[in-house]
Simulated assay, not measured.
Amino acid sequence: MVDVEAGGIAADALKSFIERIERLEEEKKALADDIKDIYAEAKSTGFDPKIMRQIVRLRKMDENDRQEQEALLDVYTHALGMIRG
């Protein structure tokens, strides 16, 4: 691959980066579609996708961060008069 300079930019290198990004964006879209399908399948069997998304988000979190977030949620809900079981 021979780089052609255009305004100080190596065009072939730039094109290569752009094409790699585009391929990854296509893969990301395909994965997002697959995830959407799984949530739809789970919903059709009676599971709540909204709650499943929350669980996935919580499982990604560090244990200490999650506990801190839950503690703050308790403080806020009590301060607003909302009872959290």
Rank of each mutant, 00 (worst) to 15 (best):
A32L: 05
E5T: 08
Q54A: 13
K28E: 09
P49E: 12
K28Y: 05
L73C: 08
K29Q: 12
A13S: 12
R23E: 10
F47C: 07
R66F: 11
E26L: 09
K43C: 00
D65G: 14
R59K: 09
R84N: 10
R66D: 01
Q54N: 07
M52K: 13
A32E: 06
S16A: 08
L58I: 05
D33A: 15
K50F: 11
D48S: 04
D65H: 07
S44G: 01
A42G: 00
E63K: 10
L80T: 01
K50P: 00
D65T: 12
K36R: 14
A32V: 07
P49C: 14
D33I: 10
D34Q: 14
I83M: 05
I35Y: 03
D65A: 14
S16D: 06
G81M: 10
G7N: 10
V4T: 13
A13D: 02
R84V: 14
M1I: 08
E63F: 06
K29N: 11
A10F: 02
L31V: 15
D3N: 15
I38T: 07
G46V: 14
V2I: 08
A42R: 01
L24K: 10
S16T: 09
E70K: 02
I83W: 13
I21V: 13
I38Q: 01
L58C: 03
I35R: 10
T45G: 00
E41Y: 01
D3W: 00
A11H: 03
M61H: 09
E25G: 02
I21G: 04
G85K: 08
I21W: 10
D74M: 08
R53V: 14
V75I: 04
K15T: 10
E70L: 11
A30D: 09
S16V: 04
K60A: 14
L31G: 13
F17A: 05
A11F: 09
V56C: 05
L14I: 05
M1Y: 06
Q54D: 11
R66Q: 07
K50R: 09
R53E: 15
K15M: 09
K15I: 09
K50W: 06
R53N: 06
D62A: 15
